[in-house]
């Protein structure tokens, strides 16, 4: 977001007041701005910190005390071990990781290939193919989920991780994002490669893919996030607790151990930690993805 224009601080020649007065005004405006920023910070990040604090409170500590105890008196990782005794949380996490990784690989490869054909190859039926992808964007997932379950059942895939991955494995939105990225490449490069005798696959892997790296990272990051965070579809298609992903496992945990908020808190921290790390590492791709997705969607 570094290219976002920032307004010059009020240095207009016609600004009213003496220099010292406007300077003092400016300083108090800046202080006010930071106060607001901190307030919003408390509202947006505070709940996560409260959950973290709860997850670190020992069994002997009263988590319902009034006034509330903001920090654990004797921080202990014990709840993270206890939550694994209560539910197989690490196997849930492994299932989530498998599903998310498969989703990333399939989307990066499948959406790039389709996007490349739509953007850089000319053939009869291209418009029709484009229409298929656009039409699917109009169908809300929630309106087809029951029928989708029937598809998985007839493929003998219900209650498998493959069924969790398949429906979103090549998202139409990603195809369109990749198409836009490939459209932006200069035609001259392609023409030169054609003259050199490169076939479509070679041009795709050697020229197009490396030039669209940024968009591929956006697709990868969002595919991981959507898959890791998804709740409704795994809830419908998975029935065996051994196959549960983290999100389903967590809502199951809440149902069974609602009396111990420390365990639920530890579980939610396990579920959110990988994404926070990914976000810190690839922050600009998240922001870029929001911008590109919003323009398309």
């Amino acid at each position: 977001m570094s290219e976002l224009a920032s307004e010059p601080l009020s240095t207009a020649p016609f600004a009213a007041g003496t220099p010292s007065a406007s300077e003092a005004g400016l300083r108090s405006a800046t202080v006010g701005r930071y106060a607001l920023l901190l307030l919003v910070l408390a509202i947006t990040v505070g709940p996560f910190l409260w959950q973290l604090s709860t997850s670190l409170k020992g069994v002997t500590e009263d988590i319902y005390s009034t006034p509330p105890q903001l920090f654990p008196q004797h921080p202990t990782p014990g709840n993270y071990a206890r939550v694994a005794d209560a539910v197989p949380i690490w196997s849930f996490a492994l299932n989530s990781l498998l599903v998310a990784t498969a989703n990333v690989v399939a989307n990066c490869l499948g959406a790039s290939m389709a996007g490349y054909a739509l953007a850089r190859l000319s053939f009869r039926g291209r418009g029709a193919a484009m229409t298929v992808f656009l039409a699917s964007l109009l169908v809300p997932f929630e309106a087809i989920m029951v029928a989708l379950f029937l598809v998985m059942r007839s493929l003998h895939l219900s209650n498998t991780l493959a069924a969790v991955v398949l429906p979103g494995s090549i998202a139409a939105l990603n195809v369109l994002l990749m198409r836009n990225a490939f459209l932006a490449l200069p035609a001259a490069v392609d023409e030169a490669a054609v003259i050199d005798g490169a076939n479509a696959w070679q041009r795709f892997t050697r020229i197009a893919l490396p030039s669209a790296r940024g968009t591929i990272v956006v697709v990868a990051v969002f595919s991981f996030m959507f898959s890791w965070d998804d709740f409704l579809w795994p809830l419908i298609v998975l029935s065996d607790p051994a196959k549960y992903t983290l999100t389903i496992g967590l809502s199951y945990l809440q149902g069974t151990f609602v009396n111990d908020q420390r365990l639920v808190a530890a579980g939610t921290m396990i579920a959110v930690a990988p994404l926070v790390l990914l976000f810190v590492a690839a922050q600009k791709y998240f922001f870029r993805g929001v911008g590109e997705g919003a323009v398309k969607g």
Binding site: A117, V139, N199
Partner: peptide
């Protein structure tokens, strides 16, 4: 050739959406 590129994407979108 173009259809080979499109095959996985179209299969997923048609089979699991349309």
């Amino acid at each position: 050739t173009p259809w080979l590129f499109l095959l996985p994407g179209l299969a997923v979108v048609i089979g699991f959406n349309l």
